[in-house]
Structure formats: C-alpha cells, structure tokens
C-alpha cells in the first residue's frame, strides 16, 4: 500500500516535469531509495509497471533504483554506525540515544528524456 502511494506521487511529479520541460518521452528514471525507507523494491517495481501503462510519457520508461545506505548517529559517544547491521543500539558504547542520519529518503536523482 505504501509503495502504491509513492509510485502514484512519483508518476504525477514526472508528468508535471514533462509538461514543464516540454518532454514527450521519459526513458530511464533513477531513484535513490534509503535502506530503511520502508520501500520494498519488488513491490515498488510492480506498482511502477502498473502505473506507467496509464501515463503516456512514461510508457517506455525504465525504473532504476539506487540504494542509499542507512547511517545512525550516537548522541552518547558522538560516533556513527551502520543502521541495518546494529539497529537502535550503538555498537561502540551500547547507548540507545541514537538517531537516524540518513537512509529513509526517496529522491528522484535524474531522468533521461527527450
């Protein structure tokens, strides 16, 4: 469900970009997806394939997903670590006073178009 919502917005954003930039065809669409964004890439691609048929400029497009690694900051020892490997608890000092620095974003990096 979450994937469906994001794809819907993505398709709409691309439609609007096409109109502004007077594009007739969009090819590759490169998305940067954070490791802990909660986006399941398989579901996302399925949802994308469903939507692109309904948006003429996107009909021949191809979705490329790049992963942004998730990094957590520890407020106690002021160091960073890999979120996916260690989770909430800092591997350096054991503190749980930790915050996600990056890794939950979903950004349209670039598109190929004519």
């Amino acid at each position: 469900m979450h994937e469906m919502g994001i794809v819907l917005h993505l398709a709409k954003t691309l439609d609007e970009t096409a109109e502004q930039e007077k594009l007739t065809k969009i090819g590759r669409v490169v998305l940067q997806v954070g490791e802990v964004s909660g986006i399941m890439t398989d579901l996302f691609t399925d949802a994308w394939n469903y939507f692109k048929g309904r948006h003429p400029v996107l009909s021949e497009s191809e979705l490329v997903l790049e992963t942004i690694p998730a990094v957590t900051w520890c407020d106690n020892c002021k160091r960073t670590y890999e979120t996916v490997k260690y989770g909430k608890e800092c591997p350096h000092c054991g503190s749980a006073e930790t915050w996600l620095l990056k890794g939950n974003e979903c950004i349209i990096k670039e598109i190929e178009a004519e």
Binding site: E21, K25, I107, K109
Partner: peptide
C-alpha cells in the same frame, strides 16, 4: 535523449498541491 538532474522528492507534485 538528454539527462535531466532533478534531485527532487518523489512527492514534489504533492508539495505544490
């Protein structure tokens, strides 16, 4: 085809609405 760098959030159209 040309490459357009967007760096935009996927929800940019929602932000405008």
């Amino acid at each position: 085809m040309k490459i357009i760098e967007l760096g935009a959030s996927v929800t940019a159209s929602n932000d405008r609405d």
